[in-house]
């Protein structure tokens, strides 16, 4: 009898307990779908630098300044301003620094083009080096010092010595 009771209790506790009672509404976090306005706010906010953060956009930052900026962007979107107009407003207040990406104008072109120039220069240098290495003249200039010229007889003797250390030691003695 006791054994059966223990078994019943064990089965009862082994059953997965429901997280909620039958008939109660499911508890889940509210999901808010992104509206067109949200998308426009995010589009502008991701182009603006959070001025008090380290390389973080206004869209990503949770600082007070970034939150205020997002609210202001939302108000400007509601007022019917275009993304360019909103960006221009922030630039007029904070300068070009507020933009996550430097504008493609003036000296900024150096920043934009330098990586590509370096990449092309690197590729050219690599190709030139490979072509020089493959040329017959280069092959003729290949150093021959790396090749160790050992007579066959000597090689055989060394191999034999390695195979039988005892023989080698006898030979020495």
């Amino acid at each position: 009898m006791m054994r059966r009771l223990f078994l019943a209790a064990a089965l009862l506790f082994a059953l997965p307990l429901p997280l909620q009672a039958e008939g109660e509404p499911a508890t889940s976090l509210p999901v808010r779908l992104e509206t067109e306005e949200d998308t426009r706010v995010r589009e502008v906010a991701k182009d603006l630098r959070c001025a008090v953060c380290q390389n973080e956009s206004v869209a990503d930052s949770n600082s007070q300044l970034a939150r205020n900026m997002r609210d202001l962007i939302r108000d400007q979107v509601r007022d019917g301003k275009s993304a360019d107009e909103i960006r221009a407003y922030f630039v007029s207040r904070y300068g070009d620094y507020i933009l996550m990406e430097p504008r493609k104008q003036g000296w900024n072109w150096v920043l934009w083009m330098l990586p590509f120039v370096l990449l092309v220069a690197g590729l050219v240098a690599l190709v030139l080096r490979m072509r020089r290495g493959a040329s017959p003249a280069a092959a003729r200039q290949a150093p021959e010092d790396d090749v160790i010229d050992v007579p066959f007889e000597e090689t055989d003797r060394l191999i034999e010595a390695l195979r039988s250390p005892a023989a080698s030691s006898q030979e020495k003695s």
């Binding site: 001025a51 008090v52 007070q64 300044l65 205020n68 900026m69 609210d71 202001l72 207040r93 300068g95």
Partner: peptide, 13 residues
């Protein structure tokens, strides 16, 4: 209240 004046002046902190 909403930090609008600060943004208008280009305030960082």
């Amino acid at each position: 209240e909403k930090g609008r004046l600060a943004i208008d002046f280009g305030v960082y902190g």
